[in-house]
Amino acid sequence: MNRSSKMKARRRRTLFFAVVIIAVLIVGFLVTKYEDTTAQAPEGTVAPPKATDAAAPAETDKPGEAGKPSNGSGGERAVIAQPESIAVLVNKQNMLPDDYKPSDLVYPDVPFLFKDKIDKRKMRSEAAGALEEMFDGAKADGIRLAGVSAYRSHTTQKSLFDGYVKKDGLEKAMTYSAYPGTSEHETGLAIDVSGSDGKCAATDCFAGTPEAEWLAGHAAEYGFIIRYPQGQESITGYKYEPWHLRYVGKEIASDIASRGITLEEYFDAVPVNN
């Protein structure tokens, strides 16, 4: 073989080895890319939420419990999962949904201290029927009752509460008025009651009147309780209100009255002021 032929053969071998090396490099790159792809999460899986993601409030079947948003004053309130329950526990720890409005509000056929047919004369149907029976029972015993205020919308309660805060400050207002969403009046199951003459209506002097004494002794027979009993402020969060009645049904009302307890204690709930 002459010198020219040897040089050509050498160039062909060099080119061959170069092609082989390039091919190996390409194959290695493709294998690495494939492995990276298969290491990713399979389609259809969900990545874990970020630390800043907020979970939706959980709901429970209990009348007064669900998720717990901040109440804006350092504590928490549970948003009630079943606001339509007759036995619903509404207090400073358990609030109604902002958009809740009872679907069965009616005008009970009982006297009120005013003539207008407005919202605060309404109650839920079952409670209204029981109220009519109670007023009839009181009348038969020589006691004449009158309604002062029943249902309030969330908007009305907010307006009232804001006014009380402006007048007396937040701390004092919280002892006698409910933060919007935590008022029993928003349930349509509560009513403030007085004598038919309107004296001492929704004020401390109502305590000890014949009307207050009759209600304390007979309200439970019709499914109502004195919601904020005397001496139970540390449990209910409110001062004594002998005029504030709450409908819970005869069975629960009878049990609460016979045991001398509050609605919080009936449900074994944590005292409001703890």
Rank of each mutant, 00 (worst) to 15 (best):
I252R: 04
T52E: 14
A56D: 12
V272R: 04
D204E: 12
R13C: 11
P57L: 11
P180E: 09
I226P: 00
A212S: 13
Y100Q: 01
S194L: 03
A216S: 07
V272G: 09
L113F: 04
P63Y: 04
I235P: 00
T60C: 10
P49N: 10
W243R: 00
K68C: 10
G163P: 05
R12N: 08
C205Q: 09
A87G: 03
A253Y: 04
A55E: 15
V106Q: 03
K120L: 10
I252K: 01
D255C: 03
G249V: 02
G260L: 07
P42Q: 08
M123N: 03
D109Q: 15
D109K: 14
D53S: 07
E221M: 00
A190Y: 03
R77A: 09
E264N: 11
P210R: 08
K6A: 14
D192F: 09
S73F: 15
E265N: 09
T60K: 13
E133P: 03
G74N: 08
E84W: 01
A138T: 02
S183R: 04
I26C: 14
D104M: 04
E132G: 15
D168M: 12
M174V: 09
D136A: 15
L145E: 00
K199P: 02
A87W: 01
D99Y: 04
V88E: 03
D61M: 05
A201H: 07
F161K: 05
R3D: 15
A216D: 01
N71D: 15
L25G: 12
F112I: 04
G223H: 01
A66R: 04
L170A: 11
Y34R: 14
K62V: 01
S258L: 00
A58K: 14
G169M: 08
E76N: 06
V148W: 06
D61K: 03
A81G: 15
A55T: 15
K120H: 14
T175V: 10
Q82N: 15
L145F: 00
R246I: 02
E76C: 03
I225Y: 02
A128D: 02
T52C: 10
F29K: 11
D192P: 09
L215S: 05
A55V: 15
D119E: 15
T175Q: 13
A81V: 05
E241P: 00
A150V: 05
Q157T: 14
G147S: 12
A178N: 07
P48W: 07
S254A: 14
K139H: 12
V272Q: 06
S149C: 07
M1K: 10
G260R: 05
T262I: 08
I26D: 06
Q157F: 00
I226F: 01
V46H: 11
K6D: 13
L25M: 13
E126N: 05
V27K: 10
G223C: 06
E133L: 07
A130E: 00
P229C: 05
E132N: 13
S70R: 01
I21K: 10
T156P: 02
P69K: 03
G137T: 04
P97I: 03
A178Q: 08
T182S: 14
